[in-house]
Write a protein that binds this DNA or RNA. Structure first.
Length: 752
DNA sequence: GCGAATTGTCATCAC
DNA sequence: ACGTGATGACAATTC
């Protein structure tokens, strides 16, 4: 359960992140919040703080249908939920709690190699399925081979509040489609027949209508739609034949995001992943020329897992490491790649990394996170998707401004090693660092290397004894001192770090971190906010503005929505007396101490209102009732404690984020330090080689010099020196020694 | 039953 | 002056 919780929580967070990055506003909370106490329990864990709310939600969402968070009869529960919500929807003010900008569930035409495979039935079914997405009641459920978590998710969608309306259902259906397509890639293509799933989800509603009726209805109603659709033979997805490439690529990216997530997303223990899923996943990925960067950058680690199709832990770690790299690489990777690449050839390094490294992905993700969360899909992806051929070049172009520092240092290094010296002199450098692949993780030097560097420093400062330095360097090279310190690799970072907000520890800067990382930051907050929504809590409201999904979710607003007024009503009347009793006991146990106190004191309104109402309305509420002094006192205590409780939770979250940010900053600094040390080593090597070359030239020039008699000068008696005007002059050795001593004295004096 | 982790509460300060 | 958020410290609870 713990692992499931972890996967599910982080998976949803990542999923939200992915969707938010591509500009789709999706409120996962909708699926977790008021409708699904069991899932909330799974995610949030048992907590008195949350349980209080959960109990509250439970009471009001179940309407008497008892459900224990840890022993859930989901089918019964969901069915009851759906029916009740439908009834309630009849007279309910609807609140849009989910906003979807665009949903395109089809692949780009280029990627559909199998689109040539005729599959009219699937086309029909898919198109109708998509259309049916807004009208879930039209299908007939049919028992299919898939009974995994997707089923639950479908039900999950079915119990979305009626107030959320079609969009929510659409969301879930589409997500469900995407999930299933990959979860079931190993199964037959009929899996992708949306009508199958539709039928499954609605089997409890329209058993009598039969499939023939439904199919004929569909075929009749969707002919026009079908005409314009092509079908991907592998995934069964249909897509408009004339859709511009931009949109298709966008849809692909979305799909690939979901695909990636789902591949790493363990949907419960009963989810079945057929062997060879990974290979299917591989096949489903479009060819490289058209593939989005997400695919090349994100999927590749997953695709290497074909040997063990679903090593979930490994898959998950892959995803987390990728997420980590996405955060890192914008700042580090490109510079380091450039740096490493220039050990041999800068241009080669650049062009070789362009097509198959995640730089492009980095750029897009970075931009997405920097930009508005509601960024348009087309604008978000236009740079890479609109003209895929330009993707690599744009990546290169964007490298420069982002990594100007790295580039400069790179050139600095290159100038020394590559420009000043002929290739043969550069061989040592290349041999040492050439084989190194660009390391996006950032290499760190071990202590041995630091020692070597210190020794080399000593050698330099002591007048650069070439022999000594060479020996040192040989030792250094033989130790392959550029080895990375694995302890500092991102793999060692906690997964939560990937979702932690960036920036420094100060609260003010932590605000800016939200704009940088969007939904990534304060993920735990969103959980908190979720629970607070129905409770009407106002905790951490200012941070709502930092989230993409905050627009309509001011809990204080929701709190006053008329249809929420029934919150707190007791709907246990339709329960059997025994179960009602159990329910009552259960709820009693879930109540907080203050709730018990309030009940004992017969406080005529909910603790929820006591805590979360604005002060004016709170006072107004108090004035409406004739309350004793004890009651008033208790009410104020409840309000104080309730607010403080939320404040404490927020405070702890901030503290945790601060710690994580500091931890990440330390890691960044360590990487920077190691990078600088590596550069220093390179510079030292270059200087040594330069000196060797100067020495060689010196000997060559000196050896050619002849005196008046045509005899060579003795190196013991004469030496060559640079004059101040840049010329080279021959002076007696004694004089040269004198000058050297003077220089040394001056240098010592300066040091003092 | 114990210790660690988590959560709730109080006191206090700052805004 | 009052309400509220933030936070350290401690207690209670949960794991």
């Amino acid at each position: 359960m713990l692992s499931l919780k972890k996967y599910f929580t982080e998976g949803l967070i990542q999923f939200t992140i992915l969707l938010s990055l591509i500009g789709v506003r999706v409120d996962v909370d909708t699926y977790l919040n008021s409708q699904l106490p069991p899932l909330r329990e799974i995610i949030l864990g048992q907590s008195s703080a949350y349980t209080q709310t959960q109990f509250h939600n439970l009471r009001n969402t179940l309407d008497g249908y008892g459900i224990h968070p840890k022993s859930v009869d989901l089918d019964y529960y969901f069915t009851a939920r759906r029916l009740l919500n439908q009834v309630r929807a009849l007279d309910r003010f609807q609140v849009p709690t989910t906003e979807v900008n665009a949903w395109l569930v089809h692949r780009d035409p280029e990627g559909s190699v199998s689109s040539a495979q005729p599959s009219p039935a699937i086309t029909l079914e898919n198109s109708s399925g998509l259309q049916d997405g807004t009208n879930p009641d039209n299908g007939v459920r049919e028992s299919g081979p898939e009974q995994g978590f997707g089923e639950e998710l479908e039900d999950l969608g079915a119990v979305a509040p009626p107030g959320n309306g079609d969009l929510t259902k659409e969301d879930i259906d589409l997500i469900d489609i995407l999930w299933r397509q990959d979860i079931d890639l190993g199964a037959g293509r009929e899996i992708f027949d949306y009508s199958h799933r539709q039928k499954e989800s609605e089997v409890d509603k329209e058993l009598s209508d039969g499939r023939e009726h439904t199919d004929s209805w569909r075929s009749g109603g969707n002919e026009t739609l079908d005409r314009n659709l092509l079908v991907d033979g592998e995934t069964g997805e249909s897509f408009p034949a004339q859709v511009p490439g931009v949109v298709d690529q966008t849809a692909l990216s979305l799909e690939e995001c979901l695909r990636l997530l789902e591949a790493t997303f363990p949907f419960g223990e009963n989810s079945e992943f057929p062997a060879g899923d990974a290979s299917h996943l591989n096949e489903a990925v479009p060819s490289e020329s058209e593939s989005s960067v997400i695919q090349s950058g994100l999927l590749s680690p997953l695709l290497t897992e074909t040997e063990s199709p679903f090593d979930l832990e490994q898959q998950w770690q892959d995803l987390m490491s990728i997420m980590e790299m996405q955060a890192m690489e914008v700042n580090n990777t490109t510079a380091e790649i450039l740096y490493n690449g220039t050990n041999g050839d800068l241009l080669t390094a650049n062009y070789s990394l362009a097509p198959n490294t995640p730089i492009n992905q980095n750029v897009s993700l970075h931009q997405a996170s920097l930009g508005s969360c509601t960024q348009d899909l087309s604008s978000l992806f236009s740079s890479e998707i609109e003209s895929p051929s330009m993707a690599s070049s744009s990546a290169l172009l964007q490298l420069a401004p982002d990594n100007s520092t790295g580039l400069n240092t790179t050139f600095g290094s290159t100038n020394l090693s590559g420009i000043f010296f002929p290739p043969q002199l550069n061989s040592t450098v290349n041999e040492t660092t050439g084989p190194e692949l660009p390391d996006p993780l950032g290499g760190l030097l071990d202590e041995a290397m630091l020692d070597e560097i210190s020794l080399m420093d000593l050698a330099i400062e002591e007048g650069f004894n070439p022999v000594q330095a060479s020996q040192l360097e040989e030792e250094f090279d033989s130790d392959s001192g550029l080895s990375l310190d694995s302890s500092h690799s991102p793999a060692s970072f906690s997964s939560s770090e990937a979702s932690s907000s960036s920036s420094s520890s100060s609260s003010s800067s932590s605000s800016s971190s939200f704009s940088e990382e969007g939904a990534v930051g304060y993920s735990s907050d969103s959980e908190n906010v979720d629970f607070e929504e129905t409770e009407g809590a106002v905790g951490y409201q200012p941070e709502y503005s930092k989230f993409c999904r905050m627009s309509y979710q001011d809990p204080s607003e929701l709190h006053y929505l008329p249809y929420l007024e029934h919150v707190g009503h007791n709907h246990t009347y339709n329960m059997a007396p025994e179960s009602s009793e159990k329910q009552s006991d259960f709820l009693d146990k879930q109540m907080s101490r203050d709730e018990h106190r309030a009940r004992a004191m017969k406080i005529p309104f909910t603790n929820d209102k006591i805590i979360n109402l604005p002060v004016e309305e709170f006072n107004e509420l108090l004035s409406k009732y004739q309350l004793s002094e004890a009651q008033l006192s208790l009410i104020r205590d409840i309000r104080r404690r309730g607010k403080n409780k939320m404040a404490a939770q927020n405070c702890r979250k901030r503290k945790l984020d601060t710690i994580l940010n500091l931890e990440r900053d330390v890691g960044d600094l360590q990487r920077d330090k190691s990078k600088l040390l590596r550069e220093k080593v390179e510079f030292l090597k270059s200087i040594r080689q330069m000196k060797q070359k100067v020495q060689k030239l010196y000997q060559e020039v000196f050896g050619r010099l002849r005196d008046e008699n045509g005899q060579p000068y003795s190196p013991n008696q004469y030496s060559l020196q640079y004059a101040s005007d840049g010329s080279v002059i021959l002076i007696p050795r004694a004089l040269a020694d004198q000058q050297a001593r003077r220089k040394e004295r001056k240098q010592k004096d300066r040091r003092k």
